[in-house]
C-alpha cells in the first residue's frame, strides 16, 4: 500500500492576547490510498484545526510551528502560499460543515464548478460540462445536466452538500479532508451521503479524513480511528478494536456516555467536569483532572505506547479484559 499523506508531529499554535493556545500539539498519523481515517474529538480538541492545517488554511494568529505534512512525499509545511494554492483543490481538498457557506449564492453551479476546474486545468466548455456532469452523477444528484444551471438556493440542504462534495471531486484529489460534513444534515440524508462517500472512496481510491464529534457516524465509515483530546491524539487504532476495547479512559468515557450504552431511564455513565481551556492546561495528561484512574504519575506527560497497529497515550490504560462488552 502507498502512503499518500504522512503527518508527523504537527503543531499548530494560536498566539492570542491571553497566551499561546496549543490547538494542535504534536499530531502524527498516516493515510493510505483509499483509506478513510476517522478523527474524533469534542469541540476544542483541535480536530478542525488539524484539518485546516493540512490545507494550509490556518489564519493569523494561528501558525504551524512544527512538524511535517508529507503529501505524496512532498512536505507542505513552510511551502509558499502560491505553491500551496496549486495543491489545494487539486491534490488535497476539503469539505466543510456548512454547505450554505461554501457555495456562492449568486453563481450557478456550472459557473462555480468551471471556476474550480479552470483554477488548475485548461479545458474547453464541452470538457468542463462533461466533467461536471460526471462528478455530480458520482455524488448521486439526479438529472445532473439539468441541475447544472441551478443556483444553490434551489437545492435542498442535503443536495447542496452533495454539490459541495462534487466540487471537491472535480480534480480527483488524492486526499479529501471532510470536516463534519453531515452534522448539519438530517439523519436520513446523512445516511445517504455516508453511503455515497463509502462507495466513492472504494471506487476512486481517494483517501479521506473524516472529522466528527459523533463516534457512531465516524465508525460507519472509517477503518481507523484517531481520538483527539486537548490538541493531542490520545488513542489510535483500527475502528472495531478501538470501539470494542478502548485503551484510553477518555475514549472509553466517550463510548460509555452514549445513551445507547445504558438502559432507558437509567443514569448514563458520564465524564465529569468540562473540557479544559487550552490556555490553562493541567500539567501532564490533560485528561487527568476528569479521569477516575488518574494518579500522581499523571502530572507527567504520558509517552505514547504502541501495540501492533494501536497507539495510546496513558499511564493507566484500560486492559484487554476491560473491553466494553
Amino acid at each position: 500500500m502507498t502512503k499518500v499523506l504522512e503527518v508527523n508531529e504537527l503543531k499548530t499554535h494560536f498566539f492570542t492576547r491571553d497566551g499561546v493556545v496549543k490547538a494542535v500539539d504534536g499530531v502524527s498519523f498516516s493515510l493510505e490510498k483509499g483509506e478513510i481515517l476517522g478523527l474524533v474529538g469534542e469541540s476544542g480538541s483541535g480536530k478542525t484545526v488539524t484539518g485546516f492545517s493540512l490545507l494550509g488554511l490556518v489564519d493569523a494568529p494561528g501558525q504551524i510551528v512544527g512538524g511535517t505534512i508529507q503529501l505524496n512525499g512532498e512536505n507542505l509545511v513552510g511551502l509558499p502560499e502560491k505553491k500551496l494554492r496549486a495543491k489545494r483543490g487539486k491534490n488535497i481538498a476539503m469539505i466543510f460543515q456548512d454547505p450554505i457557506a461554501t457555495l456562492n449564492p449568486l453563481l450557478t453551479i456550472r459557473t462555480q464548478m468551471s471556476l474550480a476546474l479552470e483554477a488548475h486545468a485548461r479545458m474547453n466548455k464541452r470538457e468542463i460540462e462533461s466533467r461536471c456532469i460526471d462528478v455530480l452523477t458520482k455524488v448521486g444528484i439526479p438529472d445532473p445536466a439539468a441541475r447544472l444551471d441551478s443556483y444553490p438556493h434551489e437545492f435542498s440542504g442535503g443536495m447542496r452538500q452533495r454539490v459541495a462534495i462534487a466540487i471537491t471531486l472535480l480534480h480527483s484529489p488524492g486526499v479529501i479532508v471532510a470536516d463534519e460534513p453531515t452534522t448539519a444534515l438530517d439523519v436520513s440524508i446523512q445516511a445517504q451521503i455516508l453511503s455515497e462517500m463509502r462507495s466513492l472512496a472504494r471506487e476512486t481510491g481517494t483517501a479521506m479524513i473524516w472529522i466528527s464529534h459523533d463516534l457512531a457516524t465516524v465508525s460507519s465509515l472509517a477503518t481507523r480511528l484517531l481520538v483527539m483530546y486537548a490538541g493531542k491524539v490520545v488513542e489510535e487504532g483500527p475502528t472495531a478494536q478501538v470501539l470494542k476495547n478502548p485503551r484510553h479512559p477518555y475514549t472509553r468515557g466517550l463510548i460509555d456516555s452514549l445513551p445507547a450504552m445504558a438502559k432507558p431511564g437509567e443514569p448514563l455513565t458520564q465524564i465529569s467536569g468540562t473540557t479544559p481551556s487550552l490556555l490553562s492546561l493541567p500539567p501532564g495528561c490533560p485528561f487527568a483532572p476528569r479521569c477516575d484512574r488518574a494518579s500522581e504519575v499523571c502530572v507527567q506527560d504520558p509517552t505514547p505506547e504502541t501495540n501492533a497497529d494501536r497507539m495510546w497515550r496513558c499511564h493507566h490504560p484500560m486492559q484487554e479484559e476491560e473491553a466494553v462488552r
Binding site: 439523519v187 455516508l194 457512531a216 465508525s219 472495531a240 452514549l258 462488552r325
Partner: peptide, 14 residues
C-alpha cells in the same frame, strides 16, 4: 438510517 455502534462485529457499522 441511524448508524449504531455495534461493538461485537469486526466490520463497519451498518
Amino acid at each position: 438510517s441511524v448508524p449504531k455502534l455495534v461493538l461485537d462485529k469486526d466490520e463497519l457499522v451498518q
